[in-house]
Simulated assay, not measured.
Amino acid sequence: MLRWIAGRVVSAAVTLLGISLLIFVAVRLMPGGYEDVILGPLAGPEQRAAVAARFGLDQPVFVQFFLWLGALVRGDLGISMVTQAPIVDELALRLPLTTLLAAMSLTVTLLVGVPLGVLTAVRGGGGRGGAAGRLLSAIGISLPEFVLGSVVIYVFSRYALGLRIGGFATGASGSGAAFQALILPALVLSVFSVAATARTTRDAVLGVLVEPHIAAAIGRGESPWHIVRHHVLRNIGIPVLTLLGSVVAYLLGGAVIVESLFNISGLGSYMVSALGRRDFGVVQATVLFTAAAFVVVSLLTELASGLLDPRVATTRKGVR
């Protein structure tokens, strides 16, 4: 197991290195540069060259990459070219907002998605209930966030329905007003994850219900919900846990659209703003942080799967 964990850590490090290289090259292939955004189209070549030299943008791309990578290894994310503030401080200021938004969305996913999937499988089966569950899941998965978010903003701005739009300030993540301002964005963000979790849970429950030990439990006269609690839920843990690991990473990285729509000063809106201003260091840091969160969550999910089902860990030992 220790050898497998070490291998996964090395694989994660290689993955992050590849992602850092891809994002570094991608942001520099975008049309226009920082000097174009700052100086405008009427600036002369001398002014553009001076700005590029000031921030090291006149050096070859591979030299810039290794300089940035070396600073990254030392824990230095660099300085924002726009605000001239350390990027790590900017991320630390905005990370609590995105984390709170993701935590609220994950809570909704767990409280709604898993019970809904179990209920549609047990009560619906392959009949009308199952068809309705599949339809609702398909709508939730396919509904774009910017469409749903735009409708929610219009409705709650037009009518007084008890929840307000906006009113969220950077650094106010611990206040009650900030929590209330995040309710609607969290609900919009959680629609996809609730639908995906409900669908995965339903399929997993239906797969367990046809197992021989379920038939044996029915033969012993156990009640349906006793069977669900003691036999079904334990056996659907692996697929549901695997999906929830991906959902956590999605919530952290997928908040870009929701934060932009609801004007939340989190990591997502920070990255979008940096893209528009060609603030390369900020874009690289935010994307790399999201990728690192996904890799870490995936690793923890695999470890938890091995603890939840010893057969998974045994198989990994034999394979690796």
Results as ranks from 00 to 15, higher is better:
31 P>W: 08
32 G>H: 05
33 G>E: 01
33 G>F: 05
33 G>N: 09
34 Y>S: 00
34 Y>W: 05
34 Y>K: 01
35 E>G: 01
36 D>S: 10
36 D>E: 13
36 D>A: 03
37 V>G: 04
37 V>E: 07
37 V>N: 11
38 I>T: 05
39 L>I: 04
39 L>M: 03
40 G>I: 02
40 G>W: 10
40 G>H: 07
41 P>T: 09
42 L>W: 09
42 L>R: 14
42 L>F: 10
43 A>E: 10
43 A>M: 06
43 A>G: 07
44 G>N: 14
44 G>A: 12
44 G>R: 14
44 G>Y: 08
45 P>H: 10
46 E>S: 11
46 E>M: 13
46 E>R: 13
47 Q>G: 03
47 Q>F: 01
47 Q>N: 10
47 Q>C: 00
48 R>H: 09
48 R>G: 09
48 R>E: 11
48 R>Q: 13
49 A>V: 12
49 A>S: 14
49 A>N: 14
49 A>C: 13
49 A>F: 06
49 A>W: 03
49 A>Q: 15
50 A>H: 01
51 V>P: 02
51 V>W: 01
51 V>S: 00
51 V>C: 04
51 V>Y: 02
52 A>E: 06
52 A>G: 08
53 A>L: 15
54 R>I: 14
54 R>T: 14
55 F>M: 08
55 F>Y: 15
56 G>I: 06
56 G>F: 12
56 G>E: 07
56 G>Q: 08
56 G>C: 11
56 G>H: 08
57 L>Y: 00
57 L>M: 14
57 L>R: 00
58 D>P: 04
58 D>V: 01
58 D>G: 12
58 D>I: 02
59 Q>N: 06
59 Q>A: 09
59 Q>P: 03
59 Q>H: 12
59 Q>F: 07
59 Q>Y: 13
60 P>A: 11
60 P>T: 08
61 V>C: 08
61 V>I: 15
61 V>W: 11
61 V>F: 09
61 V>P: 03
62 F>C: 01
63 V>Q: 11
63 V>R: 14
63 V>F: 15
64 Q>W: 15
64 Q>R: 14
64 Q>P: 06
64 Q>G: 03
65 F>N: 00
65 F>Q: 00
65 F>K: 02
66 F>D: 04
66 F>A: 04
67 L>A: 10
68 W>Y: 11
68 W>S: 00
68 W>I: 03
69 L>M: 12
69 L>N: 00
69 L>V: 10
70 G>Q: 13
70 G>E: 10
70 G>P: 02
70 G>V: 04
71 A>Q: 14
71 A>V: 07
71 A>R: 06
